[in-house]
């Protein structure tokens, strides 16, 4: 069952088409990340799913119901949790009081202490909200998002402004939630976050989804050329090498290959035969960030084309949609 289904979603503000035909789905029990630059339509899409905005066109289903239909809003509020971009918590209540207050709004909330512990706020549970750090307030926000024991959780840039430890902590919380059966739709512009958390990702640019897939395969990432890089040994010319390479000004050479095992063997064999060392030898996979930058760069420049180009066209593969 799909917990979120979006088809041909459209939304315009006065003179700007913010969302122009977005489509994706979130399966029950998965973490789905919506990636995209600022202004790409992430938040608009999320706000339509959350029921804060009305769409201009397209189909939207959240837990099988239309969030744009007021008749469903009460039911959806009981079963969907959300964490918005801005921290919004009363300053003079303690952490525990704030969570306990919201627990009272739901028919079957999680136990307050469980949520306090899950979000790593046990030590701060008696602290007033105004005395928390920014990261702790975000975690409290997350606690409020999950206190109602939602089936589906929307997270809008959940770790913006976190220090690295806090981010890893928050990721653990999100994974934990997924493992206890909550589906999660998150937006982020951190590639490492998508890589670490998401079961599937979609990249949105200029109001359209330009690629969907797992973090490992999106945008043809798994088929893209791998780069073998090292420093050319002294006294050797690139022509001496057994494989064709590109040379940079500082003497670093790069061999781009679809499958590095054989070429690597050829290169190291060649070096060993001559008693040479390949300094700085690395094999690089294109990172999610490379893919993302490639996917979004096209659309930043010319936000119209319907054709979807793979950013790693050198690989000769399309994204696996």
């Amino acid at each position: 069952m799909n917990h979120v289904l979006v088809q041909d979603l459209r939304k315009s503000y006065r003179d700007k088409e913010a969302v122009r035909g977005v489509g994706f789905h979130v399966e029950a029990g998965e973490i789905f990340a919506l990636l995209g630059p600022n202004g790409a339509g992430k938040t608009t899409t999320l706000e339509i799913l959350e029921g804060f905005r009305q769409r201009d066109g397209g189909t939207v289903e959240v837990l099988g119901r239309d969030p744009g239909d007021r008749a469903h809003s009460g039911w959806l509020r009981r079963h969907v949790g959300l964490v918005l971009q801005d921290i919004a918590v009363e300053p003079y209540l303690t952490v525990r009081e704030t969570i306990a207050r919201n627990a009272g709004y739901y028919p079957a909330p999680r136990p307050v202490d469980e949520v306090v512990a899950l979000t790593g706020l046990t030590e701060k549970s008696r602290t007033r909200v105004k005395d928390l750090s920014g990261g702790q307030k975000r975690r409290l926000d997350l606690a409020l998002g999950i206190i109602g024991n939602p089936r589906l959780l929307f997270l809008d840039e959940p770790t913006t402004g976190f220090d690295p430890n806090a981010r890893h902590g928050a990721w653990d919380v999100v994974r934990n939630l997924r493992d206890t059966g909550t589906s999660i739709l998150l937006t982020t512009h951190y590639m490492d976050e998508a890589q670490a958390l998401a079961d599937r990702v979609a990249v949105i640019a200029a109001g359209r989804i330009v690629a969907t897939g797992t973090p490992a395969t999106i945008g043809g990432r798994d088929h893209a050329l791998k780069r073998i890089r090292f420093t050319l040994p002294d006294g050797c010319s690139p022509d001496d090498l057994p494989v064709p390479v590109d040379v940079e000004a500082d003497g670093t050479v790069t061999a781009s290959v679809a499958e590095p095992t054989r070429v690597l063997h050829q290169l190291t064999g060649w070096a060993l035969d001559r008693g040479l060392v390949l300094n700085g030898l690395t094999v690089e996979q294109p990172s999610l960030e490379d893919v993302y930058l490639g996917l979004t760069a096209d659309h930043e420049a010319a936000p119209a084309p319907d054709t979807e180009k793979s950013p790693l066209s050198a690989a000769g593969h399309r994204s696996t949609r």
């Binding site: 804060f52 918005l84 921290i87 919004a88 009363e90 919201n102 709004y105 109602g148």
Partner: peptide, 13 residues
């Protein structure tokens, strides 16, 4: 202004 009302309105209260 703080978004507290928006947040509250998204709960079943």
């Amino acid at each position: 202004q703080n978004g507290i009302l928006k947040r509250l309105h998204a709960t079943p209260l």
